[in-house]
């Protein structure tokens, strides 16, 4: 079974590179749902929870590295994700199912690798336990 993941990419840094990277478009199982966000700061915890509510196996947020985010939102994103990971653990959802990656402009290859690694980790973990 292919892991079902949601990847949030920043419209200004990681996503333009991703568009240029042909290999990423070869995603036959459509297992990675890539969503463009205006900034990683815009990826609210509610959005991530919504992904898990829709049976995502994991969520990755690709954010600009330190000092590179034009809105200084990446620091808030880091804190948001650490707190969310801690909370998800209380729900029996492994914190490793949420990943924050620092991806700068022109680092499409790094992003592709990160997505592949994340998919592999999720494949090992399998889907989140069902509650029904």
């Amino acid at each position: 079974m292919n892991p079902k993941s949601v990847i949030f990419c920043c419209s200004w840094s990681s996503y333009p590179g991703l568009q240029l990277s042909e290999s990423l478009y070869e995603d036959p199982g459509k297992q990675n749902n890539i969503i463009i966000s205006m900034c990683s700061g815009r990826v609210s915890a509610e959005l991530i929870l919504e992904a898990f509510n829709n049976d995502a196996w994991g969520v990755m947020v690709a954010s600009c590295p330190n000092e590179k985010c034009e809105h200084d939102a990446n620091y808030k994103t880091r804190r948001r994700i650490i707190l969310l990971q801690k909370m998800l653990e209380q729900f029996g959802i492994k914190p490793e199912r949420i990943k924050l990656e620092w991806i700068d402009k022109g680092e499409a290859a790094k992003l592709k690798l990160a997505i592949d690694d994340f998919s592999n980790e999720l494949r090992k973990m399998g889907p989140v336990l069902s509650i029904n």
Partner: peptide
């Protein structure tokens, strides 16, 4: 306008916890 109290609270708290000097943490 709030869909999930916990999610919203995480977003609210993450914006103000450790805001000062965040770039050096």
């Amino acid at each position: 306008e709030v869909k999930d109290v916990g999610g919203k609270m995480i977003s609210a708290l993450a914006s103000i916890v450790g805001l000062e000097g965040e770039e050096n943490m």
